[in-house]
Design a protein around this nucleic acid. Structure first.
Lengths: 323, 323
DNA sequence: GCGATTGAGGCCTGGTCCTGTCCGCAATCG
DNA sequence: CGATTGCGGACAGGACCAGGCCTCAATCGC
């Protein structure tokens, strides 16, 4: 066996089992104990911290050091990493979506197909989080786009624009130079230069399908905005959401903020909180009303008040008319 | 630079950027193009699939192959992986908790302290999922225990038994031989042989604190049960939960199952569903009542009916008395 | 189609460094 | 104190590694 391959195996062994007697390691790697000691030295030279204990029942142990060693995952673990990164990328961990997608594309791009199949199977049986509205994002799609951004490869895809005034737009073919992925709230956007329209656009990732890259690369252009995030935000403000929610709660802002987190703005005092957010669907706001155990008043939109009234009526019907 | 170190760097480069011209790689690794070609060959011999494109603008590209190469994550990515594995381990991805913890302990054990700090910071600002009751599990605790199981190291810890009849039990010191971690619903259990009591026990992980291992190992005993899961289940059935919930919904079982997932049993027909579950807290069942848009009747417990009535009253107070 | 570019890989040479062996030392445990 | 296990220096033989040089093969732009 090659020296490099042996180092990798050694790292792997040290990762899967906490404690190894030197003799055992030497036997597994099929080298003399002396060579093993040298291999351990080499690891240490690479910056990894390998503890050694002498005496009877001594041995080696890889410890946290200055840098993270290459992670050697077995199949199951790789699938677990990929699946959980998916949910993070889909908004499960606010503020970390971009990095999650980055890590996810690393893993997915290198995952053997058999593991990808396992991953798909697992993902489909995964429950949707209660508050996540809309279809779950396809992680393969996310990571394909993220890689295209990173590697500066033009992308073809089919885009189904938003429904406007009840008219469903026809799917269109796009041919873009991807610039960056942006995660806003629970949604992903691709900021890209549209080659046909010769202008910058932001695309909602959940409306993108069948992405294709050709393997070519393009020369990056400069985005006409401070950064990709502000570009997307500017676009969103121009296109208002369906409902502008405004609710006053008779409780402290902390209680409200604890529930809604970053998905909305909360202002007010320690006894009265004003919640404001823009949404397309009323599921989430109704859930918020139910969760926050405080009196409230819905200032807008009327549809939310109606939805809340419907729920109240349903409860009233369902509960016995006790005291 | 060492050959092994160079191979690792090459792998890392091929992972961070999709496409590399050979000359560029050779320059970065400070070797001749000939040697680079040999390094690529070596990678291929290790089982990794490296595509090569000839001609102008040719280059190398690492592709999915038969096995996953060692993941070379940068700091941010490592933190993202750890944090998302945490939420998977805590039950975010049913059926994958064990493997997640396994992968998590690999990562955490090797993560430099600066990254661990980042991770803690991120975790604390992470919103609790609406349905997750109780304090979030400490990932360090989970992975410490998981490693102890794997490495067969006896563990000392402080255990605060459950509250019984309003009497808070005193924390006790335990000295156990850990056998396996089991994830049930949204909860973790440690199945272990209690050295002082000389019997097998299952411990709720969220009641364990200050775990200490000594670095020794023990000879594994055989668990007096088919497997660890059934051992825990047997224990739980003997110790009933606080509330036995039973609710009838005037809708199909599918609608109900879609919301509660695996956390409860749903029986019935396509027009009438019976939901049964055992819980310690009423938060989750109330949420289920609110989410499932159908008339219902609470058969038990009375406390749930009261909680629902309170919410209905709160809504009634909060909404204008329109039509 | 042709030339420029870039990867593939055989061959050779010099020399690096890698391995196994032998040895004395140090630490740890019973 | 002795057994065990890790540490590391010295050394000899040899594996293998790097670089140079060459010829082919594929690809792209002109």
């Amino acid at each position: 066996m090659n020296t490099s391959a042996r180092m990798l195996r050694l790292l792997s062994l040290l990762q899967t089992h906490r404690y190894w007697p030197g003799g055992e390691l030497a036997r597994r790697l099929e080298v003399s104990p002396r060579t093993l000691r040298r291999d351990v030295d080499r690891l240490r030279e690479l910056g990894y911290v390998v503890d050694a204990v002498r005496g009877v029942a001594g041995g080696y142990q890889l410890r946290a050091g200055g840098q993270l060693p290459p992670l050697l995952l077995d199949d199951e673990e790789a699938v677990a990493v990929a699946v959980s990164l998916q949910s993070s990328a889909a908004g499960g961990t606010p503020g970390m979506e971009e990095t999650s997608v980055q890590a996810l594309s690393k893993v997915i791009a290198l995952m053997p197909t058999r593991l990808r199949r396992q991953m798909d199977a697992l993902r489909s049986q995964t429950e949707r989080l209660p508050w996540s509205s809309g279809p779950a994002l396809d992680p393969a799609l996310l990571s394909t786009l993220a890689q295209a951004c990173r590697d500066r490869e033009p992308v073809h895809f089919t885009y189904t624009a938003a429904v406007r005034d009840g008219v469903t737009a026809e799917p269109t073919e796009r041919w873009v130079e991807p610039h960056r992925m942006v995660s806003m709230g629970r949604r992903w956007y691709l900021v890209a230069y549209d080659r046909d329209r010769q202008d910058w656009r932001s695309f909602r990732v959940d409306r993108i399908s069948e992405p294709r890259t050709t393997g070519q690369t393009f020369r990056p252009r400069t985005l006409p905005a401070e950064d990709a995030l502000s570009f997307v935000q500017a676009g969103i403000r121009r296109m208002p959401h369906r409902y502008a929610v405004r609710v006053v709660f008779e409780t402290g802002i902390d209680d409200v903020a604890a529930v809604v987190g970053r998905w909305a703005t909360v202002t007010g005092t320690s006894t009265r909180a004003v919640l404001e957010m823009n949404v397309d669907s009323l599921e989430w706001p109704v859930f918020v009303l139910a969760t926050i155990d405080a009196d409230f008043s819905v200032e807008s939109p009327p549809e939310l008040a109606e939805a809340a009234a419907r729920m109240a009526a349903r409860f009233a019907r369902s509960l016995p008319e006790a005291g």
